[in-house]
């Protein structure tokens, strides 16, 4: 029987079952322990980035090539037919006739879902506006499993931009399938959206709002930091909250030994560089895990069995 992700579009985390998430995480661990150079042999994938990205595109392209596959594509929508006014629907119809799968990033929310309705090959969403970025969540889950030895019943604090941070939303949605407990720490103006809190309520997930990072540190397994974007505030407002949601090494004294700090990167100044040398810092390893999680995802989508 083919694996449940075989030939599936990968658009959004809520589309996944718990078993499918676990399958990707297990496969990523296997590929990290024992690399395979043959799983995408003779496969050609497209990376269509209508919006620029550094890590996501390079990490997908690395994943494809490490698995023995080939890549065509573009890194910026500015020089494509989209610029001439072609619809995404038409662009995808054509590119799907060239390749075995399409990895895409697009500035419009819902772009990957539309693409999946016009593509003859699987669409892998590498980010659609502020909506979803499922491969980031898969690499986050893999990193949680790797550092904590489990996905069930973890206590996670999310810090920073909880309103617009799509990585926060998707990871919270994914972990709600595993019975997590959450702390939300961030400026009031960037609080977790109501509809997500309602989703968590419906699934019986407990969460609380905390005012400072320090107060949650002794209670958590994972500290998930995000960047508070300056452009979301006017200057006076930003000055007021600036520094409030910054993590420094001296704040980690009360942390549990297993506690790890994650960050989807890029980091600006919300984690001071003295944290990097502590045993809790795991964000660079997390970024490296992006390649394994994406290898796992692509292998499962393009092979009946892995």
């Amino acid at each position: 029987m083919p694996n449940p992700l075989y030939r599936k579009h990968i658009i959004s985390i809520p589309d996944f079952t718990r078993e499918e998430l676990e399958l990707v995480v297990q496969t990523a661990a296997q590929l990290k322990a024992a690399p395979r150079g043959d799983l995408l042999k003779d496969r050609l994938l497209a990376t269509c980035f209508f919006e620029p990205s550094t890590r996501t595109r390079l990490s997908f392209e690395t994943a494809v090539q490490r698995l023995g596959g080939n890549v065509i594509g573009f890194a910026d929508g500015a020089n494509t037919s989209a610029k001439k006014g072609e619809t995404l629907a038409d662009t995808v119809r054509i590119i799907s006739s060239y390749t075995d799968a399409i990895i895409m990033r697009h500035p419009k929310e819902g772009a990957a879902r539309v693409a999946s309705e016009f593509s003859s090959v699987p669409i892998i969403n590498g980010g659609d506006g502020a909506n979803q970025h499922p491969s980031q969540t898969l690499l986050d889950l893999f990193t949680l499993q790797e550092t904590q030895g489990r996905l069930d019943n973890l206590t996670v604090a999310f810090v920073g931009d909880l309103k617009y941070g799509r990585t926060v939303h998707s990871l919270a949605q994914a972990l709600s399938l595993f019975g997590a407990k959450f702390y939300f720490v961030g400026p009031e103006a960037l609080a977790m959206p109501d509809y997500l809190c309602e989703e968590l309520d419906e699934r019986g997930i407990s969460y609380s709002i905390a005012a400072t990072i320090e107060e949650v540190i002794p209670h958590i397994d994972i500290l998930y930091m995000t960047r508070v974007q300056r452009e979301r505030f006017d200057e006076a407002e930003y000055k007021k909250i600036q520094g409030q949601f910054v993590l420094r090494a001296d704040m980690l004294r009360s942390a549990r030994p297993n506690m790890k700090i994650l960050h989807p990167l890029p980091r600006v100044d919300e984690i001071t560089t003295d944290v990097d040398a502590t045993p809790h810092a795991y964000y660079f390893e997390q970024a490296k895990n992006g390649v394994y999680a994406r290898q796992a995802l692509l292998s499962l989508v393009l092979n009946e069995t892995v």
Binding site: T87, L88, A89, H106, P107, K108, E109, G110, V114, D128
Partner: peptide, 12 residues
């Protein structure tokens, strides 16, 4: 209502 939703510009 989301002005950045792709449904405004694609044939769906």
């Amino acid at each position: 209502p989301n002005s950045n939703c792709v449904s405004h510009v694609e044939p769906v």
